[in-house]
């Protein structure tokens, strides 16, 4: 069953211009952060959005939990169109969908104890009174491995390590037993040796609650570990969607191939042909015409600069947006 469907989603951010620039040119410029993307996430699935910085993956996540309002397109969550829902209508829905941010320290109120922070969602949604909320928060602390819970309940965020803080953030997101969660780079600011424990914690909750997850990451290795399906983004567009094993073993888009051949690995013999892209990622204000990769793509043909490729089904639940296929 489909839990979330996103179609033709767009978000352009107006560019901040200086006074003089505004006088000289009337034309408003936009950063095309998300430019017409569509995908579905099935219940119980971990769907990863992978891409380099500036590709629009974080904006997509924020649009889906509606911390940002789309310019156009459609977001249907759990049978309800939430594309332009007002904050008031969203509040009850927030019980079912949560977001975990990259920076755990910044996502916790420095003047609220860990326990209060975890109990907060229960109180916000009127699910439990203070005493019950406390009990449940203590339980949750044990669940995320912060023991003894009484000690952590009274602690403040600055007294915890990065890994512990991210556990708190996860506990806070999970205490409502949401159906769906957006995890935006949840381990990229965590020390290497502690990443595994955070990822395992997320996977445990996924199994226990039959959680559906949108996992946003730049790290293909993490995506391989945690996801069922991966979508690769480049300059505001999705270029390829496939089940994770299929994507890694049979990448079809030149950009995906380039990414995969650049990821560091301890089994280098598994690396495939090297695709070298020319130059750097272009400016998202005036992205290239046609296929956005064409100025960098070693395989580009004339058509690529003129016509934008659509996502095509190529079998095995695999979709690619490339004219060469």
């Amino acid at each position: 069953m489909v839990l979330l469907s996103v179609s033709n989603l767009k978000k352009y951010f107006p560019l901040q211009k200086s006074f003089i620039e505004r006088v000289i040119s009337r034309r408003k410029q936009y950063v095309k952060a998300v430019d017409g993307i569509s995908f579905i996430i099935r219940e119980g699935e971990v769907f990863s959005l992978v891409g380099e910085s500036g590709c629009g993956k974080t904006t997509t996540g924020r649009l889906i939990v509606r911390l940002e309002t789309p310019d156009s397109g459609k977001i249907v969550f759990d049978g309800k169109d939430i594309t332009f829902a007002k904050e008031k209508e969203l509040r009850p829905l927030r019980r079912k969908m949560q977001i975990i941010f990259q920076d755990p320290y910044a996502s916790l109120n420095p003047r609220m104890t860990i326990g209060d922070a975890i109990a907060e969602p229960l109180i916000i949604h009127g699910i439990a009174d203070k005493r019950e909320a406390r009990e449940k928060a203590l339980e949750m602390l044990v669940n995320v491995g912060l023991t003894p819970p009484e000690l952590f309940y009274k602690a403040y965020p600055h007294q915890l390590s990065g890994g512990q803080r991210q556990r708190v953030v996860i506990a806070r997101a999970m205490i409502l037993k949401p159906k769906f969660i957006v995890a935006d780079e949840p381990v990229s600011m965590i020390d290497v040796s502690l990443r595994a424990s955070i990822l395992k914690l997320l996977m445990k909750f996924k199994k226990d609650f039959n959680l559906t997850m949108l996992f946003i990451t730049h790290d293909l290795a993490v995506a391989r570990l945690i996801s069922d399906v991966v979508a690769v983004m480049y300059l505001g567009k999705i270029v390829e969607i496939a089940p994770v094993d299929e994507l890694v073993e049979n990448p079809l888009h030149p950009y995906t191939k380039a990414l995969l051949s650049s990821v560091p690995t301890i089994v280098p013999q598994m690396k495939r042909e090297k695709i070298i892209l020319k130059g750097d990622v272009p400016n998202p204000i005036n992205p290239p015409s046609g296929c956005r990769l064409h100025p960098r793509c070693p395989l580009a043909i004339e058509r690529c600069s003129k016509e934008e490729p659509k996502l095509k089904y190529v079998g095995n639940n695999h979709y690619v947006a490339c004219h060469l296929l």
Binding site: L67, R94, L108, N109, M112, E120, I124
Partner: peptide, 22 residues
């Protein structure tokens, strides 16, 4: 504009709660 206020919004907190608690 800090992340923890945004996080509170994502939790479903009302404006008055965000003002008084965050």
């Amino acid at each position: 504009s800090l992340l923890y206020v945004e996080a509170a919004r994502a939790l479903g907190a009302s404006d008055s709660r965000i003002i008084t608690r965050y």
